[in-house]
Structures are given as structure tokens and as C-alpha cells.
């Protein structure tokens, strides 16, 4: 369920990236209406107005604009992409997929169309197709958002495959926190404690405060039955707490953490 929700959220972000409902929308629409009246054969204007209408779920009006744009520029990949977005918005997934196919036939490698088709395919249950599309999109992009790597890793695929994908992201984007966190979780799912700890070490090293990461290290070790090492981690976390300046060390949250760490260190020997 969470997977579907994330897909929807990601798809929405892509589907309406240039749109917003705000007071200027009325002004933008009025301006587009005026421009369309002045330049009725300008496809771009219909596409922009359709985008505004898509953002407000005005499907029929958006479709009218898109059909007009299609008449004016029948080979435009953007028209096909927006028609796909329209069908996606209406929940007509098969039709949406066909439009994205058309868009990609006209502009192979278009990252936006690939991502939208990946999402559509995932919703249709075509997981290999979705994975392939995400991968193709990621290859096209110089600096993709971590969200894309996460979306691909969130597909119902083998954890090892998801992990490889996240490592591609880390190699490309650097040690991004969200990618490392997801990779860490997958390592734990695979039972690879040391690999998970290695991920954690990267996060710890980049942090101005160590104590929470060290506690997490202890928790992972404790869960793996390595109680001595867990205790060492908890003690290290306590040392990190003690090294904090007083105004950080004496906060209620840190004091509570220190108490918890002391208890864990005492009980995990």
C-alpha cells in the first residue's frame, strides 16, 4: 500500500511539476486565453493551458486543449506525454501507457516520459517494465533526484537488486542520507549486519553529532546477538554525549538518551 502511495506521490510530482493553484493562476489563465485568441495556431499555448487545467483536475477542458495541440502538432512528444498525464489523472492506466509509448517513440530517452511510464507500468503490475524505465531514465539524467533511486528501489523486486540500484545512486550522487538509510534497511533485511554497519559509519562520519548514530549501531549489534560489541557502541555513544557542549548535553532529549544508553550498556554485556 505504501509502495502504491509513494508511486502516486512521485507521479503527481512529475505530472504537475510546473503547476500550482494560486491566485496568479487566474491571471495566468486569462493571459493564456488572451494569447490563444491572438495566436490560435500556437500549440505551445494550448499545452500550457492544458497543464494548468490538469493541475486542477479539469480533465475535459484539459483534453480539449490537448486535442487542439495534437491537431496543430500531431508529432509532438509533449502532446503525447500530456495526454498520458491526462489518462493517468483519470486512472486510465492502459491508455496512459500507450500515450507514453507514443511520446517515447517520438523522443526516445525522454526522462520525464520514461519516469511517467515507469510509474504507470508499476501500477499496472509490470514491475520489470517499470524497473527498466526507471533505469533508462536514470541513465539519461546527469543529476537525478534521490527520489528516483528510491522509487526504483521501492518496486517489489529482490532486495539485492534494489540495493545495487541504491549503490548506483550513491556512486552518482554521493553519500546522500536517504539513499544510505534505505540501503541500510535493505542490508538488515538481507541479514548483512556488517554491511549495514558500514552504511551507518558513513552517516556517522558526516554528522556533527555522533551519539544517535552510535546508539543505532548498538541497537543493530544487539539485534544481531553481538552483545559485547553492542555494549561498546552504547558506551561510545555515552562518551559522545559527554563530549557535547553543556547546552546540548543538558537538553531533556539528550539527558533521556544518556539514561537509556546507560541502561542498555549495563544490560547488554
Amino acid at each position: 500500500m505504501r509502495f502504491v502511495f509513494r508511486l502516486l506521490a512521485l507521479g503527481l510530482a512529475l505530472a504537475v511539476p510546473r503547476l500550482a493553484a494560486h491566485p496568479e493562476t487566474a491571471e495566468a489563465r486569462a493571459e493564456l486565453d488572451r494569447l490563444i485568441a491572438e495566436f490560435p495556431r500556437e500549440s505551445e499555448l494550448y499545452l500550457r493551458r492544458a497543464a494548468l487545467r490538469l493541475a486542477h483536475a479539469e480533465w475535459s477542458e484539459a483534453e480539449a486543449d490537448l486535442r487542439r495541440a495534437e491537431t496543430l502538432t500531431p508529432d509532438s512528444p509533449r502532446v503525447a506525454t500530456q495526454l498520458g498525464q491526462l489518462d493517468l489523472g483519470r486512472g486510465q492506466l492502459t491508455a496512459a501507457s500507450r500515450h507514453f509509448d507514443a511520446a517515447l517513440a517520438r523522443a526516445p530517452g525522454d526522462a520525464e516520459a520514461l519516469i511517467l511510464r515507469a510509474r504507470t507500468r508499476a501500477l499496472l503490475g509490470d514491475i520489470p517494465g517499470a524497473h527498466a524505465d526507471y533505469s533508462a531514465a536514470l541513465r539519461q539524467l546527469e543529476a537525478p533526484s534521490p527520489d528516483l533511486f528510491l522509487a526504483r528501489a521501492a518496486l517489489p523486486i529482490a532486495p539485492a537488486l534494489a540495493l545495487r540500484g541504491l549503490d548506483e545512486g550513491i556512486a552518482q550522487l554521493g553519500p546522500a542520507g536517504p539513499l544510505l538509510e534505505r540501503a541500510l534497511a535493505l542490508e538488515l533485511r538481507l541479514g548483512r549486519t556488517d554491511a549495514a554497519l558500514a552504511r551507518l559509519d558513513v552517516l556517522t562520519a558526516s554528522s556533527g553529532r555522533q551519539e544517535l548514530w552510535l546508539k543505532r549501531r548498538g541497537d543493530i549489534l544487539a539485534a544481531a546477538g553481538r552483545s559485547t560489541a553492542a555494549r561498546e557502541a552504547y558506551v561510545a555513544a555515552l562518551v559522545a554525549v559527554a563530549a557535547l557542549p553543556p547546552w546540548l548535553r543538558d537538553s531533556p532529549e539528550t539527558a533521556h538518551l544518556a539514561t537509556e544508553l546507560a541502561r542498555l550498556a549495563a544490560t547488554s554485556s
Binding site: 502511495f5 506521490a9 510530482a13 546522500a176 536517504p178 556533527g208 553529532r209
Partner: peptide, 24 residues
Amino acid sequence: HDTERTADGAMMQWLKADLAATPR
């Protein structure tokens, strides 16, 4: 504006870690 704003999205994961990490 344009990044996923869900409670389990990448931006939120990053924000939580970033807040916890800063000693400023």
C-alpha cells in the same frame, strides 16, 4: 514546491537526520 512531501519521502528522511546531526 516540487519534491515529494510525504512523511516517508526522501526529503523528510533527510530532514530528520540533518536536524539530529547539527550541533549549531
